[in-house]
């Protein structure tokens, strides 16, 4: 029997909350990346993502991927976490998208499917490989950042990429209330579920989803009005200031140099 739609939404919301919790715990664990300044990680991991994006040879992307996996191991981010959070999902999604390309891309036919006579081309395999490897590499690196750095440090470190301070503040406040609204939505669906016996008809299910969104919207806007007052009460006049306690150690500089050198090496090897 199909899973109850309320349950599926609840599961989705729960997964969001669980990810945030996992990330927080993992960022607090000791490991190589956890020790680094957040700015080094943002700049370093981003340059690796860029190197993987620019590469035109499969082995270069594979090397960056291997580097990402090694970094994960050194930072106590388990392969189980990587597999469940990134690898399997990306493989399923991008794999499904890349599969037809194996047959559709013009090129040298390596093999023909029996009966259908579809050619598997070398170019098709390569292009599917590019897509999959790039997706997995970038997603792994992105997860490493979030799983080894407290979220607010990630946001503050975005300042090194010249993100305006106002946007950093908005991103911070939005993430703070995402957790609250996720939980509110979770509670709404749970309480709805407890009052529902048996499967709902399609229209009724739609009605539940839409009404919940409406309630959530009203609540969000109310909250924004109240938060605005609370900000004013502490002297907010429209200007945003951020305080970070980032401090670069010699190890941080070393790590930054290593990141940039590796990214540069990847680009150079790709010439």
């Amino acid at each position: 029997m199909r899973l109850h739609f309320l349950e599926r939404t609840i599961d989705g919301l729960h997964a969001g909350l669980a990810l945030a919790l996992d990330a927080e715990n993992s960022a607090a664990a000791g490991g190589l990346l956890q020790q680094l300044d957040a700015r080094v990680k943002v700049a370093g991991l981003f340059s690796l993502i860029l190197a993987a994006a620019l590469a035109t040879r499969l082995w270069v992307i594979a090397a960056v991927f291997a580097l990402a996996v090694a970094l994960a191991a050194l930072s106590r981010v388990s392969f189980r976490v990587l597999a469940t959070r990134v690898w399997i999902g990306a493989l399923a999604f991008t794999g499904a998208i890349a599969l037809p390309a194996v047959f559709l891309t013009p090129g040298v036919a390596l093999y023909r499917l029996p009966a259908l006579h579809w050619p598997i081309t070398a170019q098709g395999l390569t292009t599917a490989g590019f897509l999959l490897l790039r997706v997995e590499t970038a997603a792994t690196l992105a997860l490493l950042l979030v799983f080894t750095t407290p979220w607010m440090h990630v946001l503050k470190a975005l300042r090194v990429l010249r993100v305006p301070v106002l946007l950093v503040a908005i991103l911070g406040m939005a993430s703070r209330y995402i957790l609250l609204l996720l939980e509110t939505a979770h509670e709404m669906f749970e309480s709805r579920k407890s009052r529902t016996v048996g499967p709902l008809a399609g229209a009724a299910r739609r009605h539940v989803a839409v009404a919940s969104s409406g309630v959530l919207l009203s609540r969000s806007l109310q909250l924004s009005g109240d938060v605005y007052l609370a900000m004013q009460a502490r002297g907010f006049r429209g200007d945003v200031y951020l305080l970070d306690d980032f401090a670069m150690t010699r190890f941080d500089w070393l790590a930054l140099a290593a990141f940039l050198a590796l990214a540069a090496a990847a680009v150079w090897a790709d010439r």
Partner: peptide, 21 residues
């Protein structure tokens, strides 16, 4: 000065409803 809380809260809302089934 209302910009920050309003945009933040609406962003949070739109994030959450993207998860609705």
């Amino acid at each position: 000065t209302r910009l920050v809380p309003l945009v933040s809260l609406f962003a949070a809302f739109s994030f959450v409803i993207m998860m609705f089934n």
